[in-house]
Design a protein around this nucleic acid. Structure first.
Lengths: 194, 194
DNA sequence: TGATGATGTCAACAGATGATTACTTGTGCT
DNA sequence: AGCACAAGTAATCATCTGTTGACATCATCA
């Protein structure tokens, strides 16, 4: 009987352990927040020794930061959605932002950001960026419009929370397009000049 | 020198320790969420021995539950705000809900509910109630209006988060009345028949 | 007065948790 | 071949965390 004896030291061949840790960490942070996800639970989910997390990422906080790194493309997408004429970008902004939450490739990062950022003061920065990023990318913004854009983003965040975290009423199940159609007019109210 | 030697056993006179624990717990849960607040940090904030928490409340979760008990009056207030004609209660609902967040007597409970409910799946019920409570109290609700009310509540939650947790843009500082005036029209959009 | 329960302290346990250290083995370069 | 480094493991530490049990003192009421 050829027992696959557990060996120590570096195993032969290539390894995707780094990526697997990153993916497992994303899922864990998304499900339980920064505090709730433990290094051991992440390591187990990744099928990896705990000490390997420190080897690749230093410590838990740095792993968390690496986890939240959104692809360049996503940032560009958000920037574009708010860079046009505010009077007519309500649907574009709504569809882009809520679409990020529908996309499996980015949803975990958003979940992790919200779960961790809201659970205490210490991990709030990424969440603030998520909301204020739109404000900054709309650089040439009339100060009188700033509050309107902030309120539009708040509405979108609240909607995403209700749909993907709490699942209140029919919001968790209605089709994406209907959701966009319903939210867009309210967002438009905030983006229009007063 | 009369050293005030630490005595054991029940001290003479009355005691408000139970209430002080409750208040300290509210503040701690509001600031750090369920996981972030530790029994020891609560006890220290209350100036009380850790074991006393268990004596009065059993365990941490039960203390948390006691912390979230909103006064009857507040529940009634919320129920009234959504019980009228939906077409004309936008401002009433907006003012009532956002007003709860302005009130120091109830803000900590709302903060604790949001921080703890969003940080993981385990404490999500109180948060769901906070959102869906409005739905249930509006019992005789046209199913076609349900999504609208849910979206209105989502907007209010998002607004409260932006104002009281993340402090995005001018939302954290603008006067309460201006906030209500800005949010009401968007809420109205959701409450109006389509 | 005496019994009973409420209030409070102390010490400690058992498990979880993040991090570190020493050590082993493969890879790539010269 | 020899060497530096990357990848990986095991063991362990120090601390934090929720909870418990034994005990001490006071208040209340018959």
């Amino acid at each position: 009987m050829v027992t696959k004896t557990k060996r120590t030291g570096r195993p032969p061949g290539a390894s995707d352990n780094r990526d697997r840790i990153l993916e497992a960490a994303r899922a864990e942070f998304a499900a339980k927040g920064f505090r709730g996800a433990t290094t051991r639970s992440i390591a187990e989910a990744a099928g990896v020794n705990v000490a390997l997390l420190a080897h690749y990422f230093g410590n838990k906080r740095q792993l968390f930061a690496a986890t939240l790194d959104l692809p360049e493309a996503v940032r560009d997408e958000m920037a574009r959605a708010t860079s046009g004429d505010l009077d007519t970008t309500a649907e574009s902004l709504t569809r882009t932002y809520l679409g990020l939450w529908e996309n499996p490739a980015t949803r975990d990062q958003l979940l992790a950001t919200v779960r961790s950022g809201l659970s205490s003061e210490e991990a709030i920065e990424p969440l603030r960026d998520l909301l204020a990023g739109a404000l900054h990318s709309a650089a040439n913004l009339d100060p009188r419009r700033e509050a309107g854009l902030a309120l539009a983003m708040s509405h979108l965040l609240g909607t995403a929370i209700a749909r993907h975290l709490t699942g209140v009423g029919p919001l968790g199940t209605i089709p994406f397009d209907e959701l966009v159609n319903r939210v867009t007019p309210a967002v438009q109210v905030h983006l229009s000049p007063r």
